[in-house]
Computed example of a mutant assay.
Amino acid sequence: MIPTITAFAASPDRGRGLARDLRVRWALEEVGQAYAVRLVSFAEMKQPAHLALHPFGQIPTYEEGELALFESGAIVFHIAQTRAGLLPEGTNARARAITWMFAALNTVEPPLVEFSMARVFERDKPWYEQRQPMLEERARKTLGLLSSRLGDADWLDGAFSAGDLMMAGVLFRAKPTGILDGYPNLAAYVARAEARPAFKQAFAAQLAVFENGVAAG
């Protein structure tokens, strides 16, 4: 059965790959799994039918037979567990790859999102000038530690895995802020991820939604 995912009918990022369905598309492309996409509007995301799939009214969701999942990390984890190609066969290496998935979402992403969102939504607030340096310091501390751990390796733990997919996906969303410029090895890491055919296919598919919407409008 071909799984179905949901994505923005009109993404706020204008097709730049910042919406989190990119991670799910990328994982499906990496394992060679065909999939269908159901586009939802912001209004539809708050309706009972979608809330039954995602209780917080967000995207992406994933449906396959009787299974319905939400949260990009959980969806990618499921894909990696049920298809070959994203998790190593060895027990310890597999566990480490899963650990990096959690690290990407729980340790690296929060300070990066807080830093980038403040730049967009808080610039007109009286506390912005005082708060932003603190947010940037937190983000840079995390990136510095990640940079030290990666070193000159191509990937986080041997061959490319779901851990790299999630980590590179998180870092990719931080690119527009310019914060990666201070960490050449992390910038190169993201570039290697972007060069993967599966990423290119996923990005093109997400971008096509925006371009088709513009053409239709």
Rank of each mutant, 00 (worst) to 15 (best):
M101Q: 13
L22H: 05
N92Y: 14
L87S: 02
T99E: 15
S41R: 03
Q58K: 12
W100F: 12
E66D: 15
E29Q: 06
N92G: 12
W26S: 04
G73C: 07
L28H: 04
F70Q: 09
R25E: 04
G32S: 06
M45V: 08
A118F: 01
A95R: 15
K125A: 15
V40M: 07
R123S: 12
L53V: 00
R123C: 10
H54G: 02
T99M: 14
Y35C: 00
V108G: 01
E63K: 14
E44V: 07
E122H: 14
R38P: 08
P111T: 02
A27G: 04
E30M: 03
E109L: 06
M101C: 12
T99V: 10
L67Y: 09
A74W: 00
G90S: 11
A68T: 15
V120Y: 11
R20S: 07
A104Q: 00
M117P: 00
V24F: 00
Y62A: 05
F70E: 10
E114A: 14
I75V: 08
I98H: 12
Y35G: 06
N92A: 15
P126F: 12
I98R: 14
E89M: 12
Y62R: 03
M101R: 11
R119T: 00
G85C: 08
Y128I: 02
M101G: 11
T82V: 02
H50N: 04
A52G: 09
V108H: 01
A49E: 13
R20G: 04
E129S: 15
M117K: 13
E114D: 13
A74H: 01
E44P: 04
A27M: 03
E66H: 14
G90N: 12
S72H: 09
F115P: 07
M101H: 10
L86E: 09
Q81L: 14
E63D: 14
E109V: 03
E64Q: 14
G90T: 10
E89R: 15
R25P: 01
G90F: 11
L67R: 09
G32D: 07
Y128S: 03
L22W: 08
A80L: 04
K46Q: 13
P60C: 05
E129W: 09
M101S: 06
A103H: 15
F102K: 11
H50D: 03
P111M: 02
T61C: 05
E122P: 00
V37H: 08
S41T: 07
V76L: 09
L22F: 01
Q58I: 05
R23A: 08
V76I: 04
P110L: 01
P60V: 11
K125G: 13
P110S: 03
V108P: 02
E71T: 04
R94N: 12
R38Y: 07
W100S: 08
G65I: 11
F121P: 01
Y35F: 06
F115D: 02
A49S: 07
T107C: 10
V37Y: 02
R83I: 00
A104S: 04
L112C: 04
A104V: 09
R96A: 12
